[in-house]
Nucleic acid binder design. Sequence first.
DNA 1: AAAACAAATCGTAATGATTACTATTTACAA
DNA 2: TTGTAAATAGTAATCATTACGATTTGTTTT
Lengths: 137, 137
Amino acid sequence: MNQQEAVNMLKAHNFKITDKRLDIIRFFEEADGYRTAKDLNTYMESTHPNISFDTVYRNLHLYHEMGLLESTTLQGEKHFRLRCSHHHHHHFICSHCGGTKEIDMCPMEQLKKALAGYQINDHKFEIYGLCPSCQSV
Amino acid sequence: MNQQEAVNMLKAHNFKITDKRLDIIRFFEEADGYRTAKDLNTYMESTHPNISFDTVYRNLHLYHEMGLLESTTLQGEKHFRLRCSHHHHHHFICSHCGGTKEIDMCPMEQLKKALAGYQINDHKFEIYGLCPSCQSV
DNA sequence: AAAACAAATCGTAATGATTACTATTTACAA
DNA sequence: TTGTAAATAGTAATCATTACGATTTGTTTT
């Protein structure tokens, strides 16, 4: 389903459909959580032995620009995950496996009035810790 | 006042009091907002022409460890500011000048129950935009 | 189906932030 | 004043990320 969405988006922007671009989506579908460029590169090397860093980073950037991926910086390294297409929400992020859990609460509404005069462009609300399965490891 | 606090903390940890360490605090007192290692290095070079990157990064890390500085990553680069010593709160951060405004609301309380089974270690809530004075620039 | 062309990729080099290392200097305690 | 470990300068190394020329490939057009 994300495959199809990616294809549609690429076509809409007149970008080409390549095996590598589809495999990148496949990787994030399977990952279901935050992953680094290095993680993706390792995965890609298994099926495309001679893939270039350029390809990995360029397409991460492309998908991010198109809004298909979202990113955050964890321990000084950029991490990416598929953007949930439905409503606005935030995430609990497992520091061990990168997995996420939706947080259906956004604190911004209550803050608009406290920030009168400030131009708000973006916000980040993330909770870090260990998910249930990673606590026993 | 932060000077004195830094001196006390350094002594408590048996670290030495050096001109450079005091100047670093002075820089952040004057800055009153988020600054990069490069920003600090530029400032330090004005009074200590031969200062080393090592000294800048080592002391940033030291102060961060001791809790005197807090940090966040903006546009892929680590930024630091003096940690407010009083109550827990969050920040609006101006993307132009790095200045901050306290947000006296923390969304974590309402979330504890929604995250039963998850081990919560940390959280980040930041709002980005332009402060009043930077909007007219 | 072949040709044409721009886009995508590879291979690799360059960059920028951060960290690490050794010789020297310095804070501070005895 | 001296001794000693900590701090620093100078510089090299590392790591993530970006950039670039040559080649390949997806897609459109013929």
